[in-house]
Simulated scan of single mutants.
Amino acid sequence: MGALSIWHWVIVLLLLIPAWPAWQIAKRAGLSGAWGLLMIFPVANLIAVWLFAFLSWPVDRHSEIRAN
C-alpha cells in the first residue's frame, strides 16, 4: 500500500467538478449548498436534478409576491 497515484487524484477531481456548480445552484435555489454534493453519487444526482427542476425558486416566490 503506497501513496495515492496521480490517477486517484484525477478521479477525485472529476467527481468533484460537477459538485461545485451544483453547490452554487442549490444556494441560489434557497437550499444548503451541500445538496450539490449529491452530484457525486450516481442515482442521487438524478433525484437532485429533478428536485431542483420542480422546486419553487426564490425568483418564483418573489414574482408571486409582486403579483399579489
Rank of each mutant, 00 (worst) to 15 (best):
G2A: 04
G2H: 11
G2V: 00
A3D: 12
L4P: 07
S5H: 03
W7A: 08
H8M: 12
V10T: 10
V12Q: 05
V12G: 05
V12D: 00
L13E: 07
L13M: 12
L14W: 14
L14M: 15
I17L: 13
P18K: 00
W20Y: 13
W20Q: 15
P21T: 12
A22M: 14
W23S: 03
Q24V: 15
Q24I: 14
A26G: 07
A26I: 06
A26N: 04
R28P: 04
A29I: 11
A29W: 09
A29V: 09
G30S: 06
L31R: 13
G33L: 09
G33V: 10
G33N: 13
A34S: 10
A34R: 08
A34I: 08
L37P: 02
L38W: 09
I40T: 07
V43M: 08
V43E: 02
I47G: 04
I47Y: 11
W50S: 07
W50Y: 09
W50A: 09
L51H: 01
F52S: 00
L55C: 04
S56C: 01
W57H: 09
P58M: 02
P58G: 10
P58L: 01
P58C: 04
V59D: 06
R61P: 01
S63D: 14
E64H: 08
A67T: 06
